[in-house]
């Protein structure tokens, strides 16, 4: 599973990356978490408010930091 955190490196982006990591650990699944801070790439997902979470190339959340349990739900639904 490919999980991407989109954001130019603000505080919230770090929080989201941490939360995503925790969700992956708790679910004990095999997932790759990468941070995307290149503006052009972020825009290519159609995201206008950062941070955003992308699972398997699909934007699941943008503009806020979801809770760990919300992220788990996204992962399970993906």
């Amino acid at each position: 599973m490919e999980i991407k955190v989109l954001g130019p490196g603000c505080k919230k982006c770090g929080t989201l990356a941490e939360a995503a990591k925790k969700a992956v650990e708790e679910l004990a699944i095999d997932a790759n978490i990468t941070k995307v801070d290149d503006m052009v790439k972020i825009l290519s997902y159609g995201v206008m408010s950062t941070p955003a979470l992308v699972i398997n190339e699909k934007v699941v959340v943008s503009g806020k930091v979801p809770s760990v349990s919300e992220i788990k739900e996204f992962i399970q639904n993906a």
Binding site: P8, C10, M39, I42, L43, S49, T50, G63
Partner: peptide, 17 residues
Amino acid sequence: TPFCSCSAIPLFLGFVE
């Protein structure tokens, strides 16, 4: 509109585009 100054750039790009 919910807005945080840290996303001023993606917002600007999205608007212009």
